[in-house]
Design a protein around this nucleic acid. Structure first.
Lengths: 227, 227
DNA sequence: TCCTCCCACAAAATCGATTTTTTTCGTTTT
DNA sequence: AAAACGAAAAAAATCGATTTTGTGGGAGGA
């Protein structure tokens, strides 16, 4: 019993789980193009793994709507379309709107604190930065902030649905707004949202959230290639 | 080109896909108990398949929320709880309510026809029957009817979410109301719902749907074992 | 020229065996 | 007696190889 350092998280992970994260990143950043076929042999080689964990990882990405499996002809990256994006945005407004209402009703002081913490971390990330690592840390903080807003809604399934939809719209944003400068007033909106939520201004919070989601949607639609 | 009979469905299926259906049935009917551990070795033997397709099938059932995977310690059947059921019911009301509103707005005559067809098929199934096959055909028709009601909503993702939630609440109903006689007025409610939808009485349709879903929820809650 | 059939190739799906990790259960230590 | 340990057993995860299925192209026939 000397000064043994207890590892905070034993990192109980598996190859498949690691692969899920790696593949998700590749799809999210657009390295794997929407609609493109995922050749198992090539992927296996590229990631240096066997077929079993690769297949399992892809299967798990199906849950998130990032890939689709067709019997006997393998996996492809989920294609993108204006209609699909429209639905994602619409459902995000509905689902997150419901979730935030419930969260405002049930959230306690600890939750308020977590929101402020998440907001702080988010605002510390320079969005305009050129560095990939910094952009990535903004993405992480942004996702965490939105998740925290609804974390007190008391509905695990709903939170999962929201997370899935958020991921899907993030893919659009990251691929199609890659070269666009981020909106100026986004940080202000996040701050306004956090305060509206904490002060239990349900109406305000819902509205800011809706505007926030829909504006991003329109920005993407504007540059989405037409069919 | 003699009298070649064209197979209606080439059945482009794979072992994994077959397994998904078989496992889903086992879980839905409660053969595999909620919360129970799924021993891969035993399952492999029971279904006469290898690990690869079995693993893939289980992974796909995760999407439907019927099983859960924990790294390094395998799969288990999703446990049940009063809170979980409450959330499922709540979300079904919200999601299907939204979907039916959109469907009423966008549905055409062909859709109306499909609803009546589905309703007819449903009403032809004797719910009170003792035969397993007949009960099963009612389940199929019932699911098809509810799916048809919202099929015109123009939102594939939402339909998928609704289908998932429907499956989950069906599992509760099939397991916990196995020995209870079905409610007398359920067929009448289906008919009323179909007509309200076709006649574009949005308000009525939503209300009937909500009552329909919530009553089943209460019936299950009443017999759900307390913790 | 166009269509159909057949073969070789590529890819997906599946299997059986091997490697890791967790769980179990007796044994020891305090 | 309770906690701690460790080796054996069980189970999950992974791998490499085999089988099955889809695909593309060319020969043969209309």
């Amino acid at each position: 019993m000397s000064s043994t350092i207890i590892t905070p998280a034993p990192a109980p992970t598996t190859l498949s789980s690691t692969l899920v994260a790696r593949l998700r990143d590749s799809i999210m950043r657009g390295d794997l193009l929407p609609g493109s076929k995922l050749n198992l042999g090539r992927l296996r080689a590229a990631f240096g793994v066997s077929l079993s964990p690769l297949r399992e990882a892809l299967c798990r990405l199906e849950n998130d709507g990032l890939v689709a499996l067709i019997d006997q002809r393998g996996y492809r990256v989920t294609p993108v379309s204006a209609e699909n994006l429209t639905e994602i945005i619409r459902l995000r407004v509905e689902f997150e709107g419901l979730a935030i209402k419930e969260a405002i009703e049930h959230g306690d002081v600890a939750w308020e604190g977590r929101i402020l913490a998440a907001l702080h971390q988010l605002n510390r990330c320079k969005r305009g930065s050129r560095s990939t690592a910094e952009l990535e840390s903004w993405e992480v903080a942004h996702r965490a902030f939105h998740a925290e807003l609804i974390s007190a809604c008391g509905m695990p399934l709903l939170r999962q649905f929201c997370a899935t939809l958020h991921d899907q719209s993030d893919r659009y944003r990251r691929i199609f707004l890659k070269k666009h400068p981020p909106d100026r007033d986004v940080p202000a909106e996040h701050t306004a949202m956090a305060h509206a939520v904490i002060e239990r201004r349900t109406r305000d919070a819902s509205k800011i959230l809706r505007v926030h989601i829909e504006r991003t949607g329109r920005n993407i639609q504007a540059v989405l290639p037409r069919k």
